[in-house]
Design a protein around this nucleic acid. Structure first.
Length: 638
RNA sequence: GCUCAUGUAGCUCAGUCGGUAGAGCACCUCCUUGGUAAGGAGGAGGUCACCGGUUCAAAUCCGGUCAUGAGCUCCA
């Protein structure tokens, strides 16, 4: 019997029935056979040594393909599980999938794994790889699978298998002395894994539910070559070097204090300058595109939060109330109710809309102690918040403007790559389905008009409306969610917001919540990591360090300092009793963009010498000429 | 909140078997007055996160609290 195989380029070839993808690849080239990880026959991903029984089109995946990576890592996780079972037979296996970067496997083991255990496991894994076991796929009836895993005492696997339909065939993979319930596919054999590393251990709940038992999770990564592994580990190291918590300390940007409380940020002077620059820029640009800046209180009566619904749907994130004159007041977790008060303070006409209130509003939210993380996740933060209140017909246009504005802002801070997500109606929602559909369509149209590529996150919207999220990619290609544009069906209703339409009748306005940078704290953290602390001139807390060669040049340095400060340039004069090399080193370490070096030569010629951070000596300039250059650079935000 | 780890000078970190605290950098003083990434000498600085227990004796062992880190869950 022959089968006909179609290749991606359209060509066809006949093979004996039962030929494996690996054999097919070997027939094409040794190199290909060596590199491929799995095959896709029609729409099914299959193992390379699975016998092909029927004609179809075939596709090979290599490690460089996402599909290839997933299988590669998944198989490595099986090798790890095998090693763990060999070393700790009493450990029970739970699940071990591949993830975005590598894989993990969860184990139920009495004593947690230590770093030393990881080393042991790594050694055992190498033995398994060297032995070169096959990943052997078997299809068995459910009853047989249950028997196997029951006998092994693998109750987590038994639980998983029990959930499958009665007559479904169960696939298991056997590699030497290890059996796992798994739908595959897998690498053909263990020695395909050339380089791997176990990275960390941590606890993880069975099935991600904190009511369940906590298991021990081991994370790892693997690659087809030592070189790629090294590259990956280097990237991790680079990320560590840029960690905003580390740089925040080194550059004296911000701090947290045990005496004050966790998750409460103190912006030190150098961080404060940056925040001030960001805020000024933010306000100016918002004003330009029609926002009105407002300021609102930090606390509000319980009635307000009852009306808004926060007390019923958001209370777990709110702090306990304080009593003032027999009334309960809550510290705000959001700014919206206050903005709505301002809106409602007057009778509004359709002619006034859209109304856009913007506020750098500081909110406080309870976050569980375990989730706090530097500036990225805190308990008190300032949202770059705004509420757009408009007529239904204005919605689409407003969203188009918003997308454009958001991307402009993010680009100003050096971010060039974006991922955009449209989240649609979740299972639990308020409002009418048809309204949701309309609003969702408006958001979608806005994205289309803006010609922005986006993905749909089905059912991921908030209960009160669909939303658009924009994620930025930083210089290490990590993504961070900043912008969120959320449509709200809920609050206009709850607060009975109105405007008078053309028809002289009352109408319900539409409302959009939006934060573009997200929160200033988090955005600052992202900025620090994106630039690795080397802020562009317009953001740098100190833009210029004036470095006199010796005490004789202090006076000239002071003159320059005054001039620069007059020109609104953030400069400092170094009057330490040190050699120039020392002072330069210090300025380099503080990542100050420019140094002005002055000595006898410069005083005589009335010039300055410029050294650029990380670049070195730029030669001599006239002070005025240099100031112009600086101003241009600030203007360009580069 | 949960699991595990960590907490020693402003910072980064040593501190063995329980015997009462150490380095480098930073800081201060003096010498040195120098040309593009660390000149020299001296000095000051710690209730070893906090509370309790064991012990003749605790940075060290045990318990609790607080904080931090890695994750789980959630989110700006």
């Amino acid at each position: 019997m022959k089968i006909k195989i179609t290749f991606p380029d359209g060509s066809k070839k006949e093979y004996e029935k039962g030929t494996t993808p690996l054999q097919i690849a070997e027939g094409i080239s040794k190199g290909l056979a060596n590199e491929i990880i799995l095959a896709k026959l029609n729409d099914e991903e299959i193992d390379l040594n699975r016998k092909i029984e029927k004609s179809g089109s075939i596709l090979f995946y290599k490690f460089k393909d996402d599909e290839g990576k997933q299988v590669y890592w998944h198989s490595t996780s099986h090798i790890m599980a095998q090693a763990v079972k060999r070393l700790y037979p009493d450990a029970k296996v739970a699940i071990g999938p591949s993830i975005e970067n590598g894989f993990y496997y969860d184990f139920d083991k009495k004593t947690p794994f230590s770093d030393k255990d990881l080393e042991k496991i790594e050694n055992e894994m190498q033995k398994i790889i060297d032995k070169n076991f096959y990943f052997e796929r078997r299809e068995i009836p459910k009853s047989e699978a249950l028997e196997i895993f029951q006998n092994l005492g693998e109750n987590y696997k038994v639980e998983l298998i029990n959930e499958l339909p009665e007559n479904e065939k169960i696939t298991i993979y056997v590699q030497g002395d290890f059996v796992d319930f798994c739908k595959g596919p897998h690498l053909p054999e263990t020695n395909k894994v050339k380089a791997f590393k176990l990275l960390k251990v941590s606890g993880a709940y069975w099935r991600g539910d904190e009511k369940n038992k906590m298991l021990q999770r081991i994370y790892g990564i693997s690659f087809p070559s030592e070189k790629e592994l090294k590259k990956y580990l280097n990237k991790l190291q680079e990320a560590e070097k840029r960690d905003h918590r580390k740089l925040g300390k080194e550059l004296d940007l911000f701090g947290f204090y045990e005496e004050v409380g966790p998750g409460l940020v103190h912006w030190h002077p150098k961080g404060g300058i940056i925040r001030n620059v960001i805020e000024d820029f933010w306000k100016k640009e918002h004003y330009k595109v029609g926002y009105e800046i407002v300021y609102t209180p930090h606390i509000g009566k319980s009635n307000l939060w009852e009306t808004s619904g926060h007390l019923s749907f958001y209370s777990e994130n709110m702090y306990a109330p304080m009593k003032i004159d027999e009334q309960n007041y809550y510290i705000k977790p959001m700014n919206c109710p206050f903005h709505i008060m301002i809106y409602k303070s007057d009778l509004r006409s359709y002619r006034e809309l859209p109304i856009k209130y913007a506020e750098l509003g500081t909110v406080y939210r309870y976050e569980r102690s375990g989730v706090l993380h530097g500036l990225m996740r805190v308990r008190g933060f300032t949202q770059d918040d705004a509420h757009i209140i408009c007529t239904p017909s204005q919605l689409e246009k407003e969203v188009v403007k918003l997308l454009d504005f958001s991307i402009f802002l993010l680009k100003s801070f050096g971010f060039e790559n974006f991922e955009i997500f449209l989240s649609t109606r979740p299972d639990k929602f308020v409002g009418k389905k048809e309204e949701w559909n309309k609003a969702t369509l408006s958001l979608k149209n806005a994205l289309e008009i803006s010609k922005l590529p986006y993905k749909i996150d089905s059912g991921e919207g908030v209960f009160y409306g669909p939303k658009i999220d924009i994620k930025i990619k930083d210089s290490l290609d990590r993504s961070w969610q900043c912008t969120t544009i959320q449509f709200d069906f809920n609050l206009p209703e709850r607060f009975d917001m109105k405007y008078i339409g053309e028809d002289n009748k009352e109408h319900r306005p539409f409302m959009i919540h939006r934060a573009l940078l997200g929160s200033l704290e988090r955005f600052f953290g992202i900025l620090i990591e994106h630039y690795a602390g080397d802020f562009p001139l317009w953001l740098a807390p100190i833009q210029i360090k004036i470095i006199p060669i010796s005490e004789n040049h202090f006076e000239y340095g002071n003159k320059i300092l005054k001039k620069l400060r007059n020109e609104n340039i953030r400069a400092e004069l170094n009057i330490q009793n040190e050699k120039i090399g020392y002072k330069i080193r210090e300025a380099e370490n503080k990542k100050i963009p420019y140094m002005i070096i002055i000595g006898d030569k410069e005083i005589e010629n009335k010039t300055i010498s410029i050294r650029k951070h990380q670049k070195g000596d730029l030669g001599t300039f006239q002070l005025n000429e240099f100031i112009e250059k600086l101003k241009k650079e600030v203007e360009q935000k580069k």
